[in-house]
Design a protein around this nucleic acid. Structure first.
Lengths: 250, 250
DNA sequence: ATTCTGTTGTGTTACTTTTACACTTCTATT
DNA sequence: AATAGAAGTGTAAAAGTAACACAACAGAAT
């Protein structure tokens, strides 16, 4: 390396350092806000859609219910924070989790400005025993959820609508059922979440024609009538063949 | 009021104050993060989808393009911040604006941790002259957008996908056209944004059957061939009759 | 074992929606 | 007057959706 090149190298390094300092100083001037994540964890049990709630810790919200939330740690991506909350509260990993919306009304938190990012998760209540029952953690029927702290009712409503819509486009609901399920269970799930009645034959036809159900050859055995066949969902086949959206309809 | 009631009232007030202090102290302990909004402002011109970009101010991103962004003010709801950015940059109010997604990778901003919330806006390039041309504000073709600062390319990509999907469910695209438009312009818009070819007859049939187009009786006059009829979109009728989603398809 | 009850499992028809496709009308240009 | 280029229109085949009834089966009660 020539000395001219070396000098030029040093110059460049200095420029980079200066540029970095400039950006860092700029960011210093930004107002800072506490960020939390709130997890709306849906489950399905007894033919009803449920959501995990706990009692608020805060005196101010005495007796009210809240979603599972926590502030985001330094240098923690919000997706990771949501997974962490889920893990800390339910002991579960590898469940479906998706960012839904950010809520930022200036006075949504009485303790000062706090912005929260809502995440949705869906899990099978049977497979996910609630190990940590602090704060009366429990599955609450979504339809009757009320008396909630902060703007958590609004967040729940938005997430519920989100779920209803996504259910029609993606087989999210299957995360709410056991690995093996009967078509009746599947239909109950759709009827409960979408809050509509569906024709049984057309429902079956629809799902069979999509060709993502694998017949396990097994039958229900915990039921007091003719047992239905049990199916698994073929997630691999689904991810290869999922429908591309082309039609304009509004 | 009895003195017992008065005392009880004072007691309650004290409790409330204590409770409030408790919450405020709690929020004090949360880590704080700078929040910005970034606006992805789409326009349509010359049969191409465009997006508003400016040159980065930062030495570090010399020559790179960025979305229109700004940090959120204290006690400013993020929706309002996005509208403010839009107003400050384009002088426009009353345009469509929607929150899309929050981006929070810890090192997405070189100056330290910054979380950003992306908003999408669609506007008609003809009706929205760019008054403020600082930082080389200009309409950039979406397809060729690259060399962007921060994670703005990723944000743009996410918003573009979001737009493509929403276009099929809601008449968002009409915010990109003049108030009166021909069916050819409308089809060009859909073809450009969705990046597909559509059958002209079926496209017309589809839109006429939806019955949201109002025939103005006028014709194009800036065109070197047989002029097409001009239509307006009936937003009122649309908002009353918009399709409810029921079918399961994935 | 017989009967009763409730659920599973299946097929057809009418209707609606989507797709594919070609020719005439109209305006501006030459 | 001829030409070029886009507007405007209809139909038939195919696919998908919606409505609807009855036999097979398992468990429970008798």
């Amino acid at each position: 390396m020539s000395s001219a090149e070396a000098i030029s190298g040093i110059k460049k390094q200095e420029d980079t350092n200066n540029a970095l300092e400039q950006v860092q100083q700029l960011v210093e001037t930004y107002p800072r806000v506490p960020i939390t994540v709130d997890c709306v964890i849906f489950g399905f049990d007894n033919n009803e859609l449920k959501v995990l709630l706990i009692r608020s810790d805060l005196e101010m919200f005495d007796g009210k219910w809240t979603l599972l939330g926590d502030f985001a740690h330094d240098d923690e991506e919000l997706d990771d924070a949501a997974y962490r909350v889920l893990r800390e509260r339910t002991g579960m990993r590898d469940v479906y989790l998706e960012q839904v919306k950010t809520f930022s009304k200036p006075h949504r938190h009485p303790g000062g400005r706090v912005i929260t990012v809502a995440y949705c998760s869906l899990l099978n209540t049977e497979h996910h025993a609630l190990n940590i029952l602090d704060n009366e953690l429990h599955w609450h029927t979504v339809k009757t959820a009320c008396n909630m702290a902060f703007d958590h009712k609004e967040i729940l409503d938005v997430c519920y609508k989100w779920l209803q819509k996504r259910m029609l486009e993606h087989p999210l609901g299957l995360n709410l059922l056991p690995e093996k399920f009967s078509l009746r269970e599947l239909q109950n799930l759709y009827e409960a979440i979408l809050d509509i009645k569906l024709d049984r034959r057309n429902f079956r036809k629809k799902f069979f024609s999509m060709d993502f159900l694998i017949d396990t050859g097994e039958y229900e055995d915990d039921v007091h009538h003719r047992p239905g066949r049990l199916y698994r969902f073929d997630f691999d086949k689904y991810s290869q063949n999922k429908k591309k959206w082309t039609g304009i309809e509004f």
